[in-house]
Amino acid sequence: MGTMVVTTEKVKELQKVLNAQLLAIGVSLAILIDEAGNVIVAAGNENGVDTTSLAALAAANFGATAQIAKLLGEEDFSILYHKGKRDNIHFTKIGMDFILVTIFTDEIPLGLVRLRVNQVAQELLNLLSEND
């Protein structure tokens, strides 16, 4: 566990991927966080969303469900999904250390979000693991 450094170029590249793959299908907000609960990059409409708290809770939530998974003999649950009345939230593990949080309304089909998130996962991981 070292120190992660993100440069302006890296942020732009990551945002470009989130914009092209997720915001393009109507996702309201996509946030890439690390497992310590830091926001690495956010794309979309952050209005009224406390991303710092969201990142801390998402990381904790993921950690807690990973422990539940272990109780069942699973390594972890790589996808989490919570459905609300208006907004839905989807969490996906990206590699070992990162989590992609996606927030979207009922108008966007869950299947499409999952498909895009799967497609984008490797791309994000490649960008994150590249040395500057």
Partner: peptide
């Protein structure tokens, strides 16, 4: 894991 964000010029520590 500390995060150094050179884009926003921020250091995040836990």
């Amino acid at each position: 894991m500390a995060l150094i964000d050179l884009n926003k010029r921020e250091i995040h520590c836990k």
